[in-house]
Design a protein around this nucleic acid. Structure first.
Length: 713
DNA sequence: AGCGCTCAGCTTTTT
DNA sequence: GCTGAGCGCT
């Protein structure tokens, strides 16, 4: 039996609500996840719905994994029930549906998922073909096409708010781009959502099947849904048995089409709905909440909601003025040593050489900094206080910033103090060359029409096939696909005899495709690791990577690590395992890659931090142009999103919150004088304590902003 | 085809 | 200050 007594009145009301539409407006730290998991457990326990009929949509894979575990713990009397829930992100659930049904839309079941890099490559080729010049770069089209898809507009339906000349151009590129995706049997991220909606609209029978399958739908982070996701919920949720949770004050994905009006209009869409507000905060101290509250009040259009807490005031929030980004990092590092230092006076002189996720050992990073500052190792190590070996856990510290680019200066200070850290996002394991190459081989094994992958590995390792050969082969694949879709690779390869290449290149290409065919004729009972090993052997990847250099050795180790990851799919036949594996890798979110075990502080962007909490948070770079970001200053609605972003950042902290701004900062290779963020000025002075003159932000400074005295560098 | 050199342009945020 | 495109040389 789940114990409702551990819930407060509002939470209980939500958990035990009727089966009609329910909107839970949940402030940060108000027990949103708890409410959601209890709700799922409750409807199962009361037999209001079968576990297999529940669809729970979350924002990240990590969140869904956690939720499944928590539901499982609550349902001790229903063993296995949690496994039967359908849970995942919108993207992964759509991918699963499409994997079954996409034949009806003219794609093959073996479709691959293109990430933004892949997308960019196609768009680049199209822009070059159309000779669009520098004023119309691929990035522009990728943003606009994404916007169109999020609004559910196919190329033929495209109607973005643009002048007619531009609209024509975008349409032209969009048509070609989408044709390419179809020819390559590939879907981009936005297609996963859009095509699922299009499928449901075109095929009532399919829609009905899923409507009957998922009779109860729960959505986390509802404020971040876009039109496609909204439409999907309207279609699937005809039964109106919906339970959505969100906080309009934490809507931070407007840039990728999320529409805050989805949550604001919930009552209009579902007039019979129940609305429950969770306003008691269990996470943060009163000081932290008071500061966050004042910040969010900068936005007038927020749904009124007042957080309160029984927690005590706690420490005041520390506002720090640093001279520059280097001093900013040093402050953070010093403070961490002070707070987590444990026994003092036992400096560690050996830099930690364990790998960090950025792929560079701490020692490498040290050498880099040494090159930069010309410091000797002794001087370098002495430069900052060191973290003793018996330090407290570092898992409860996090450093937040607006953009990835800000991490560098912080990292350097952390290395100098010997503080282990992990970065979420930025360079990913799956972005490394040797890993990406292997993924491309695997993608080709699944779907040889994937030209983005083909281009990448056609000459990897070198076999004399360059740009020219690629183009000839590409045209051949496109033509053969136009004539007849779904030609198996065996037949494709016999037709390949007609390809117009010089003898040497023809033979080389022939043997490349022979290898692909070999992978395809691997017995079905083989496993994914076996397929990977075969690829390694057939393309002599081990010999190529292990060239005797240290770097080569580490690349090979990365490939071995990929093999380890693939072990997870050993119990499946390779074709299924391959599909699952590629899909999972493609839809991995930044935060999914965070290592929970590792005793290290976490560095990440504000966006990645949503939904997380830490005892101590360092919030850095609180300057005009960074937060709010300079690109957000034109549109008031973008500025409001920056304020919400700040709100998200502040409310991650449980006990200690440090806010840092720098007087000057290096960007684009030149030093810029910085102005403290307007967001800081909104904070209640009496909740703050100041370091090195930070109080100046409250000094009288006239109407529009803060006067900063000129400084010399 | 592949290497190395020079110079421009650049940074939001993510599935 | 870093990356990646473009060019010229081998």
């Amino acid at each position: 039996m789940i114990n409702l007594e551990t819930l407060n009145d509002r939470q209980k009301q939500a958990v035990t609500a009727g089966m009609g539409p329910v909107l839970v407006l949940a402030g940060p730290g108000s027990g949103k996840t708890k409410t959601l998991t209890y709700r799922i457990a409750y409807v199962i326990e009361k037999k209001l719905v079968h576990p297999g009929q529940i669809l729970a949509l979350t924002f990240t894979n990590k969140a869904s994994k956690e939720m499944r575990e928590r539901v499982n713990k609550l349902l001790t009397k229903f063993p296995g029930a949690a496994e039967r829930l359908t849970m995942g992100t919108f993207h992964s659930v759509c991918a699963r549906i499409l994997r079954k049904e996409i034949g009806r839309l003219g794609y093959g079941q073996d479709f691959v998922i293109f990430d933004s890099d892949d997308q960019q490559k196609i768009l680049k080729e199209i822009c070059e073909e159309l000779r669009l010049g520098k004023s119309l770069p691929p990035q522009l089209f990728s943003a606009l096409i994404s916007r169109a898809k999020n609004l559910l507009q196919l190329p033929s339906e495209m109607n973005l708010d643009l002048d007619s000349r531009m609209k024509e151009k975008v349409r032209e590129v969009y048509v070609r781009y989408q044709d390419q995706l179809v020819a390559q049997n590939a879907l981009d991220f936005d297609d996963l959502l859009m095509l699922t909606v299009k499928l449901f609209e075109a095929e009532p029978a399919v829609l009905e099947k899923y409507q009957q399958l998922y009779t109860y739908i729960l959505v986390d982070e509802y404020q971040d849904t876009n039109l496609a996701q909204y439409q999907l919920l309207r279609l699937l949720g005809v039964h109106r048995r919906l339970f959505v949770v969100g906080d309009d004050a934490q809507s931070i994905y407007g840039f990728r089409g999320s529409d805050i009006t989805n949550i604001l209009n919930f009552e209009k869409d579902f007039p019979e709905c129940e609305i429950i507000k969770l306003e008691q905060n269990y996470r943060s101290t009163r000081n932290i909440l008071a500061v966050a509250q004042k910040v969010i009040e900068l936005n007038s259009e927020q749904k009124p909601k007042t957080l309160w807490t029984e927690n005590h005031d706690g420490e005041k929030i520390t506002l720090v003025q640093a001279d520059d980004e280097k001093a900013e990092g040093e402050f953070v590092a010093r403070k961490i040593v002070e707070l987590a230092g444990g026994k003092k006076d036992e400096p560690v002189y050996e830099p930690d050489t364990s790998q960090n996720p950025a792929g560079m050992s701490i020692l490498d990073r040290f050498l880099l900094a040494k090159k930069k500052y010309g410091a000797s190792m002794a001087g370098f190590i002495r430069a900052l206080p060191q973290l003793p070996k018996d330090h407290d856990s570092l898992k409860e510290f996090c450093i937040l910033y607006r953009t990835h680019a800000q991490s560098r200066s912080i990292e350097e200070a952390l290395i100098q103090s010997g503080i282990p850290y992990q970065i979420v996002g930025g360079y990913k394991f799956y972005d490394r060359k040797e890993i990406k190459d292997m993924l491309c081989f695997l993608r080709l094994a699944q779907n040889y029409r994937d030209l983005v992958s083909l281009k990448r590995v056609l000459n990897e390792p070198p076999r004399g096939l360059g740009e020219k050969s690629y183009q000839v082969i590409r045209d051949f694949i496109l033509e053969s696909g136009a004539k007849e879709k779904d030609v198996p690779i065996r037949e494709f390869r016999s037709a390949f005899a007609e390809v117009k290449l010089s003898t040497k290149q023809w033979q080389s290409a022939q043997s490349f495709f022979e290898a692909l065919e070999e992978f395809n004729s691997l017995p079905k009972s083989a496993t994914l690791p076996e397929l990977i090993s075969l690829i390694i052997r057939r393309f002599r990847l081990e010999q190529t990577l292990r060239d005797g250099s240290e770097k080569g050795e580490s690349r090979w180790e990365n490939l071995e690590e990929l093999l380890t990851v693939a072990q997870k799919f050993k119990n499946l036949n390779w074709p299924e395992a391959l599909t699952e594996f590629l899909q999972e890798v493609a839809l991995l979110s930044e935060i999914d890659q965070k290592n929970e075990e590792k005793d290290a502080i976490t560095l990440m962007t504000l966006h990645s931090a949503k939904g997380l909490e830490f005892d101590t948070v360092f919030f850095v770079g609180l300057e005009e142009g960074i937060l709010p970001h300079s690109r957000s200053l034109v549109e008031p609605k973008d500025l409001a999103e920056e304020v919400r972003l700040a709100y998200v950042g502040l409310t991650r902290a449980r006990k200690n919150l440090f806010l840092v701004f720098a007087r000057s900062r290096m960007s684009y290779g030149t030093r810029h004088i910085q102005t403290p963020s307007r967001i800081l000025k909104a904070m209640p002075q009496e909740r703050l304590t100041f370091v090195s003159g930070a109080e100046r932000i409250f000094e009288d400074s006239g109407e529009d902003g803060i006067v900063v005295e000129k400084m010399e560098f």
